[in-house]
């Protein structure tokens, strides 16, 4: 018998610290598989953000830098400019990317910074114990919205892909999820494209992955995936929000 599925090389042997059923692990594996398939682990430098994924520096086999909270894309910009041949990516959660790091995100995107951004949206702050995130849904109960997120006071969630898709510097903005085998395959294809874009010098690519936080949502891992389907996907529709290749084709200006 042949091995048809095994741990990718770009994932280290360090056991993941994530809670049981947390989809961070799936996305980690997809990124590592893509690094393997593109043969770029040795050129890659990843930026770990603050939050649950901070210790991703132990899990990715490529060189890693840990950034201050929200600053991952500024750090990635510095790496990008210093290493013209490097493959630079960030791995960030929703609090990091869409609250404290909004300015860094928007400006890296509008500069068309040639980096790959993996954005985990699980609608909650995981590491600090389940507070409201910028992407928490209206009426979602969290530690800091115990009566549900009141949009009159706490405002509305941020739809990152939609927002960034208006910027000229963005090559790819795509929202995916990992709730099923089919969607994991779509997610992997998106992540691969986001890295390929960078290698081909196309500019900023972001893949938003709708993810679960079973622990802080108070659900079993299986039920959490169902909650994601029932509540998150309707508010955050899956799909490609910007693909520079296709836009150019539509405009016909590359003919």
């Amino acid at each position: 018998m042949d091995v048809v599925f095994k741990k990718p090389h770009a994932l280290t042997d360090a056991p993941l610290h994530y809670c049981p059923g947390c989809t961070h692990g799936i996305v980690h594996r997809l990124v590592a598989e893509v690094l393997d398939e593109l043969g770029v682990e040795g050129k890659a430098v990843g930026v770990a953000s603050v939050g649950c994924s901070v210790m991703s520096y132990n899990y990715f086999g490529c060189d890693m830098v840990q950034a201050p909270h929200g600053r991952a894309q500024a750090v990635a910009t510095g790496l990008r400019r210093a290493l013209p041949d490097g493959v630079i990516f960030t791995y960030q959660g929703d609090g990091d990317l869409a609250a404290i790091g909004t300015a860094e995100t928007v400006h890296a995107a509008t500069r068309g910074e040639n980096i790959t951004v993996i954005f985990i949206n699980n609608a909650i702050y995981g590491m600090t114990g389940g507070q409201m995130a910028p992407t928490s849904l209206p009426n979602q109960i969290t530690q800091t919205t115990p009566y549900g997120r009141d949009v009159n006071s706490a405002g509305f969630p941020v739809r990152v892909c939609e927002m960034l898709s208006t910027l000229d510097g963005v090559a790819l903005a795509q929202r995916v999820t990992v709730d099923s085998v089919k969607n994991v395959k779509i997610a992997k294809a998106a992540i691969k494209k986001a890295f390929q874009n960078q290698i081909e010098g196309k500019g900023y690519s972001i893949v938003e992955v709708l993810s679960t936080c079973p622990t802080n949502w108070g659900l079993s891992p299986v039920d959490a995936l169902q909650w994601l389907r029932d509540n998150m996907i309707p508010y955050y529709p899956l799909g490609v929000y910007k693909d520079a290749d296709k836009r150019d084709n539509m405009k016909g200006d590359k003919e």
């Binding site: 599925f5 993941l16 059923g21 594996r29």
Partner: peptide, 19 residues
């Protein structure tokens, strides 16, 4: 059947599939 669905969904890459 070696479809690897289990491994695809495993967050901890704990499953190796042989076929």
């Amino acid at each position: 059947i070696g479809c690897a669905f289990c491994a695809t969904m495993c967050p901890d890459t704990a499953i190796t599939v042989y076929k």
